[in-house]
Design a binder for these strands. Structure first.
Lengths: 375, 375
DNA sequence: GCCAAATAATTCAACCACTAAACAAATCGT
DNA sequence: ACGATTTGTTTAGTGGTTGAATTATTTGGC
């Protein structure tokens, strides 16, 4: 079975694209193998010939993305295989997060291991964007130095923000009081980060990516993040769905009770009013029902088989679970055909920073050819 | 700019995949050009060289997908260009639709022109699946014969059903009273259709595809179909999103009033109870508000910029518009940043059959290499 | 009327990436 | 010690794209 290339892309395909794709394919295969696979194992897993895999692996080793393991795992007859693994001392991603009451930075290497982790607790609202991001940049610079001392090379950075992001611009971050902030420029004002490409994304989106990495299992789920507001990251087929303008996942403002409580967004009956952090802290009895109603809408619309509750929902999960599941059973049309799985996130408060760092190395994994070209 | 091949596909890529992709690229370029383009124009539009385009075009002409226009459009100095266009007498798609009170068949050629159109009005519920599909098959056979008399060759058929479909199986079609019907097998029971590949999909999904073709413009929209029930087809980046199990788009059972009217699905307050065909016919005052609440949820979750109301909503659109838009302005978080466009469908009752036929030729357009290989 | 300029399309050598098959290397079992 | 077995590399061959040169066909100036 040969691949159907995505038709929508209106760019021509050359031989070099074939190589780029197959490099990524080999890298993914190695990354997703339980044990370090041999070149031959990769070949049979991918459908490429051993000759091709050898050539690709040579490139990946030369580029510092793969390593040949020293003590070859020996099994049965035949020439012993050389095990392949992702390089730990290669490209790494810098994750950054700003939120109402803390800053965080985190470095993750190609294998997904967290190599550095720094946090700074302080109210970020009074400082304003320029100052807060400068402080975050300094935190990131410290993490970078420490990581580079370990032999890592940063491939880029990603910033998690609690707000709406278009492209690289933070359009609105209500809880920070920000509007139209060009975060990458401000971050790169810190000299030690000046050379890094910086991406910006919504906090819930990146947290969802973090959960995807850790959960490992299902590549289709909705991650619901309970912070001051409620946001959601939708992962479809292992890929984050950001929406046309990048403003998807605003589940906190889905209407659950049309004539209900007034919300700070101007509407009435938003989910946030019944299941936001304040409502949860007040032991709000309607929280589970409200969540169930909103989540049932998501499942009816999108046929998502798994829902992951993260952030502030995690400690409340045991209390909320039954109520949510009851509403899902009742309100999801296809509940009888296949149940919806509900679970708590496995990552805690650092899901977003970690997801941000993950997003960077995911970029390297998905397009290793770009990394090899870099020199 | 060379293409980033989709990384998710875990299949290897060979040179033949490159050709397959570039064949599709050339075909799309010709299809989307206002005037019949020359090979040179296609080359500069795609980024391929003229040599490559010539070779690809030769294949497409030999395979009957493209035609060289006879009277070459002359412009300025230089050798006159040979205009390229999709072949009208080439592969065509057979669309089939079964609904509560009618059967329909329709043949669309590669250029998107409807070449045959047959309808049969009758209540399909008493007959049962086997008989209803046999009747539909006979209707399709008549359309096929007429089309083949015009020199068309059917590339396949697609069937639109008002119900939940997994793979090729109709799991539930409540309004028809069907359960677990293997529609392709029953349809191919009609000898004249025995050789056709038959795909099955939800009626709203296919109607959305039909609308995509006709609308031409925006490749991101939600199509909401008001039939006996309310379904929705979500088109993202020109591609239909079907959900993990194919059960997306059940907007009719999104909750709008949690303690509202009882719905036949067992839940309370479903949209269908306030904006279904019956409610519309009864001049239901809550219809616009209910639609607005449900649609706002979709936009908050998915950031869809355009909503198209089709089916039974079309005649009621002028009456509903203001009410829906008011709710959207109020309840969509990003309404202030960019408005949501609401419009009535441009296709009428035949959207689904037509979309079904379109889906078939879309398959040919997206993978012309498969068609060329067929012989 | 003829030649130059211009544009379209084709031809051909070179290149790149993959395949298939033969070959080399390294181990196990007897 | 030797064959069986499996891994990894080498080499020739194939398919597909590129780029430059070539051929084809028109317009416009003199």
């Amino acid at each position: 079975m040969t691949a159907r290339l995505s038709t929508r892309s209106s760019a021509p395909v050359r031989q070099s694209s074939v190589r780029a794709h197959n490099l990524a394919l080999v890298l993914h295969t190695v990354a997703n193998s339980a044990d370090p696979p041999s070149r031959a194992a990769v070949a049979s897993a991918t459908g490429l010939t051993r000759a091709t895999v050898s050539a690709l692996v040579d490139d990946l080793i030369a580029g510092g993305l793969l390593t040949e393991l020293d003590p070859p795992p020996r099994t049965g007859a035949g020439r012993p295989a050389a095990g392949l693994a992702l390089t730990a001392a290669g490209p790494a991603g810098l994750g950054l997060e700003i939120n109402v009451d803390y800053l965080a930075a985190c470095v993750v290497d190609l294998t997904g291991t967290v190599r550095q982790r720094l946090t700074e607790h302080a109210d970020q609202r009074p400082a304003g964007p320029a100052e807060a991001l400068a402080a975050l940049g300094r935190l990131g610079a410290r993490a970078r130095l420490a990581a580079e001392a370990d032999g890592l090379v940063l491939a880029g950075a990603a910033l998690a923000v609690p707000g709406l992001v278009s492209g690289d611009l933070v359009r609105v971050a209500p809880n920070l009081g920000w509007q139209n902030v060009d975060a990458p420029v401000l971050l790169r004002g810190v000299p030690e980060l000046a050379d890094l490409p910086v991406a910006v994304d919504n906090e819930a989106n990146l947290a969802a990516l973090g959960e995807l990495r850790v959960a490992g299992g299902n590549p289709d789920f909705l991650y619901v993040s309970g912070e001051v507001g409620i946001g959601a990251g939708l992962v479809i087929d292992g890929e984050l769905y950001r929406g046309v303008r990048g403003w998807s996942g605003e589940i906190g403002h889905v209407t659950v009770y049309p004539d209900g409580r007034h919300c700070r967004c101007g509407a009435r009956g938003c989910l946030e009013q019944y299941a936001g952090q304040e409502a949860l802290a007040a032991d709000e009895p309607l929280a589970a029902a409200a969540l169930g109603i909103a989540l049932a809408a998501v499942v009816n619309l999108l046929d998502v088989p798994v829902i992951v509750l993260g952030g502030a929902f995690v400690p409340h999960f045991p209390r909320l679970r039954d109520g949510i599941e009851a509403e899902l059973r009742r309100r999801v049309l296809t509940a009888g055909l296949a149940p919806v799985t509900l679970r708590a996130a496995s990552l805690g408060a650092d899901a977003a920073v970690r997801g941000a760092a993950d997003a960077v190395i995911r970029g390297v994994r998905d397009d290793p050819a770009a990394w090899l070209r870099r020199t």
